[in-house]
Design a protein around this nucleic acid. Structure first.
Lengths: 159, 159
DNA sequence: GATGAATTACTCGGATAGCATTTGTCCGAGTAGACACGG
DNA sequence: CCGTGTCTACTCGGACAAATGCTATCCGAGTAATTCATC
């Protein structure tokens, strides 16, 4: 049960974009260089964030990605859901109804599978915790020097 | 981020074994037949549960798997950790220190990565929720007819 | 100097390989009970 | 009837093959700013 690295990339890219004050678009090449990532693949993993309305992309020269909403309105759950999908990690395939369970009356399966319910409860706690934290919270605990360095790296070269 | 189906299998097998009163071992073939699963592969996924001390295996004729502990002392976290591993789903590869971050003084990275901390907090909530539920809890909410049917299927054929 | 066309730089979306993990199968080694034989 | 040796059935553990998904790259199409030519 491993999470794709696209989540880490998306998180750091969104955080870096929130450090920029002017909200000017940053190209994927620049972002990839910022974290030493493969540019083409990074682009592929940022696209779902655009579809989810977290990032906005602008084509043409001086185009690139920028935050589409305020950092206070982007929860970590939004980013994870956009990159990794909204499906639960645990999939209930109802094996309780197969094999010997197939002979049981269907009334026995009126209530949902207890195993699935328990797993779902745990995943809900996970989602709730992710939804409670926003990009603004991450911004508050980030080192003071980091935003300035990223601004120098992204805005400095564009000026 | 998909969880392997071995978790579902392990959960239901442990639950079925907890329904049996005599704690007699049940062979993988019987368990596989109970849920209509591939016997060889089911065996492969139950072995980690034995290594984790959740199940006990006995060789020879009339051997098989049985619960090694009381259902009250087996949490869902134990089963998930045994089957799926104890590593976090989110892996922090410290990309903040690469690329442009490599030029930053190492003092900036004294505190752990904020993204990793946030993700870890969510996973801890997930783990806490799983650890709070035991097999005995699942046993309490299971349909009344299910244990008897499984007993008939497992013990009946062995008598 | 202003207007419009061509150029350039960039993103988007899909198509396509390489790699890792998961899923599934198979076989030899070891162990405990069942059976047969001899005392 | 009892003890001993052999046989059988079962699990364990590892080795191996297939399938699925993740990682990574590439190319054509579209778009907007820039550049250049023209009026």
């Amino acid at each position: 049960m491993l999470m794709g690295e696209g989540v880490e990339w998306g998180m750091h890219c969104c955080l870096a974009l929130s450090w920029l004050e002017d909200r000017a678009p940053v190209s994927t090449g620049r972002l990839a260089e910022l974290f030493e990532l493969p540019p083409e693949y990074l682009k592929k993993r940022l696209q779902p964030l655009v579809r989810a309305g977290i990032l906005s992309s602008s084509p043409g020269p001086r185009g690139g990605y920028a935050l589409a909403r305020a950092p206070e309105q982007i929860s970590l759950m939004d980013i994870v859901a956009a990159v990794e999908g909204r499906e639960d990690a645990f999939r209930c395939t109802e094996i309780r109804q197969r094999g010997a369970g197939a002979e049981a009356p269907s009334s026995e399966f009126g209530r949902p599978c207890g195993v699935a319910t328990a797993m779902r409860r745990a995943e809900l706690a996970w989602r709730r915790e992710l939804a409670a934290q926003t990009l603004a919270d991450l911004l508050a605990v980030s080192p003071a020097a980091a935003p300035a360095r990223v601004r120098r790296f992204c805005e400095g070269l564009s000026a």
